[in-house]
Write a protein that binds this DNA or RNA. Structure first.
Lengths: 188, 188
DNA sequence: GGACCCATGTAAATAGTTACATGATTCT
DNA sequence: AGAATCATGTAACTATTTACATGGGTCC
């Protein structure tokens, strides 16, 4: 089993979905920490069904063609829970952003500031979007209860916000340092 | 050009290296945010040389065979700086950990607590290692100067520490919530 | 009429991991 | 003697992205 497989099983545990719906979930909100294109999703769904972890039923769709709606089987749920409770695997952390920062010393102070300003702007943007997402939770306290299927969406959102806030603070401290070194003004 | 290519150019900008040395740098410290196996590195080095971004010289190594030491060319440096100052590309964020959290509601309170405790322990471990790494910087204030080739190593380390501290706070808040819901004691 | 959403697939290419292959030196 | 480090490569496989292919319905 590969990671995408578990991602799909996790989505199906909440509710049955079609391939297209899985694909859209990979944009938002699951896409915040796992993504895949439809060309990877459709074959993977077929594999999961062949393995007996999903079952599909053909239903007439609103579009031009019939759609297959997949449901998690008892076996699929067992496999998912087994993975969840299993040992943590250390994933290779990859950040193209930090790769740039690594080589930042090759840039002029002006270029370096531009880079960090861009990161800061993007982070602020992401935080604003996360805040909108968070507003969907405010009245219903239920989602902060582990048994609620929305618990994961709430907990991962909290994590994402924390990570971005940390990035924002990092940007600010870095910009402060870059500005004390060189006082050229940032372009409008 | 792919990302690994830029990662290698970034390493070479600091100092000439052999394929083996690049491979070790991918474990630590560059490996904290980018990694690759030697089977991917050697062919990539050959490609970069073919493209005129690196130049190699064969030198007798301490091991049984001669080693190729690669140096960044003027053109390679230009390509790297161009990428650094170019527009940010939004990378697909992938976190197997958050994928598990997403489906946490399927776990018993006990299992859920175990999962977060495991994350917490791993995060503490990473922070301890980062602290050791940070001690290599304490006396030399030079590395906090943009022009210093060590600047990137310092800045990325700061970022990594900030991210992990945020994860730690997240774990603590989550555990608090999980403990108020269910008072079963954590196993020894 | 054109753009976009719905809906599902396959093909080709690139990126990345795991396994195969070899062999000297140094440390325990 | 056995393990670890040095050192570089290829082969096979898996994962992921980009491009090809089709076609109805809705909104502007």
């Amino acid at each position: 089993m590969n990671t995408l497989g578990y991602a799909i099983l996790g989505l199906m545990a909440g509710q049955p979905r079609t391939g297209y719906e899985v694909s859209r979930a990979m944009d938002r909100p699951l896409g915040y920490f796992w993504s895949a294109r439809h060309s990877q999703i459709y074959p993977q769904l077929a594999e999961l069904e062949a393995a007996g972890l999903l079952r599909s039923r053909i239903v007439p769709g609103p579009g031009p063609r019939d759609t297959k709606r997949y449901t998690l089987t008892r076996q699929g749920r067992a496999v998912l829970v087994n993975w969840l409770a299993g040992p943590l695997t250390d994933e290779p952390a990859k950040s193209e952003l930090m790769l740039r920062v690594w080589s930042m010393w090759l840039l002029t102070p002006h270029q370096a500031r531009q880079l960090i300003e861009a990161v800061r702007a993007e982070t602020l943007d992401a935080l604003a979007k996360a805040d909108l997402e968070r507003q969907g939770f405010s009245p219903g306290v239920a989602s902060t209860d582990l048994a609620d299927p929305e618990f994961g969406r709430w907990a991962t959102l909290q994590w994402g916000i924390g990570q971005r806030e940390a990035t924002l603070r990092w940007c600010d401290r870095l910009l402060e340092r870059l500005n004390t070194t060189d006082h050229t003004t940032f372009p409008p």
